[in-house]
Simulated scan of single mutants.
Amino acid sequence: MMLARTMMRRVAAACKKGVRNGTPSTTRTINTQMDDSYPILISPSLVSLDLPDIWPTNSSPNEFRSTCRCSNEQTAAIIDGKSIAGEIMSRIACEVWRMKESIGRVPGLAVIMVGQRRDSQTYVRNKIKACEETGIKSSMTELHGNCKEDEVVNVLSRFNADPSIHGILLQLPLPQHLDEEKILDVMSLEKDVDGFHPLNIGNLAMRGRQPLFIPCTPKGCIELLMRSGVEIMGKKAVVIGRSNIVGLPTSLLLQRHHATVSIVHAFTKNPEQITCEADIVVTAAGVPNLVRGNWLKPGAVVIDVGTNPIEDPSCEFGYRLTGDVCYEEAVRVASAVTPVPGGVGPMTIAMLLSNTLDSAKRAYDFT
């Protein structure tokens, strides 16, 4: 022990001498002398670098000059997510019926909603309706927007322990006063049908690994591309937005499908120019009409995940949904585009039910 301490003191003294005196060198170096009170590494933690993505106000479509030009007529094929999702849900309903006939059990999905965000209410309402249509048992718990963390955790824990529940959906985002990461950590990995558990995301990121569940919206985007005959391998893809819910897992999933992926976010310089080089554009920024026609490469395929509520008293619930893409311009440039609503939204629900069915099959060892 004494010998080790002596060696450590000698090494420290030598290092200090080297810093103070310097050494002859033919290369140009940057001298960053620090006293002993500094930590070994001065790089900040990754979490401390996390800044909110606040997108700038939409610029005029004429401010960005590019080779992208809009024609006067619609050229894009419309990717009908509602129709494709309907086909998938019909097959899910058949499997649920087969499970019920064979073993007398059906998949169970629990939904937890905190607060009263309009878009979340729309999603949850559609998900509960889809469960009814496919024969999946659903259980709904609503909590006030100002509820405490322990209340959410207690509901989650109760569903974790319920063997009749095979999937738990915690509708995100949560109110800001709640620790989303801490709450998600409580969720059972085997019931994380939204695919947001760190182990599921980690396995999604690593080649050779398979997550138990792929996040529903990214999974739905890929399904839309494949069913529309869009080649992904080797193509340039741009994902606009980097949320844990959509942007991040979508970029990881596209990489697993061998696309060359760029991520555009609120701090990206010249996002229009980067996006205009993409063969595939997936946008999930949450900014109405952010992506204009001159952001797009002629012939690009556009998947619009944006579902932004816009006040409209003439609509049933007092608002309508619009996407991140200026649809009227995109259809004159792209080769294919998803509408909002009726594009990605129904696919997200179909993937949620598919994940829930898979979870129930795993729990009951049903094939």
Rank of each mutant, 00 (worst) to 15 (best):
M2Y: 12
R5Y: 10
T6H: 12
R9D: 10
V11I: 15
P24I: 08
I42C: 12
P52I: 11
P52V: 13
I54P: 02
S60R: 12
T75I: 15
A77H: 08
D80N: 15
S83W: 10
E87D: 14
V96L: 03
W97T: 13
R98F: 07
G104I: 06
S120Q: 08
T122V: 15
Y123R: 04
Y123I: 08
V124E: 02
G135L: 02
H144D: 14
V153Q: 03
D162W: 03
H166Q: 02
L172R: 04
L178W: 01
L178Q: 02
E181M: 08
K182Y: 05
K182D: 03
D185E: 07
V186L: 03
L199F: 06
L199G: 01
L199S: 06
N200Q: 09
G208T: 05
P211T: 06
I214M: 05
G229F: 07
G229W: 08
V230I: 15
V230A: 10
M233T: 14
A237W: 04
R242T: 08
P249W: 10
L252I: 10
L252G: 03
Q255N: 12
R256M: 07
H257G: 05
T260D: 09
T260F: 11
T260M: 11
S262A: 15
I274L: 10
I274G: 01
V287L: 05
V287F: 03
G293H: 05
G299E: 09
T307C: 09
D312W: 09
R320E: 01
C326I: 02
E329F: 06
A336P: 01
T348W: 09
S354E: 15
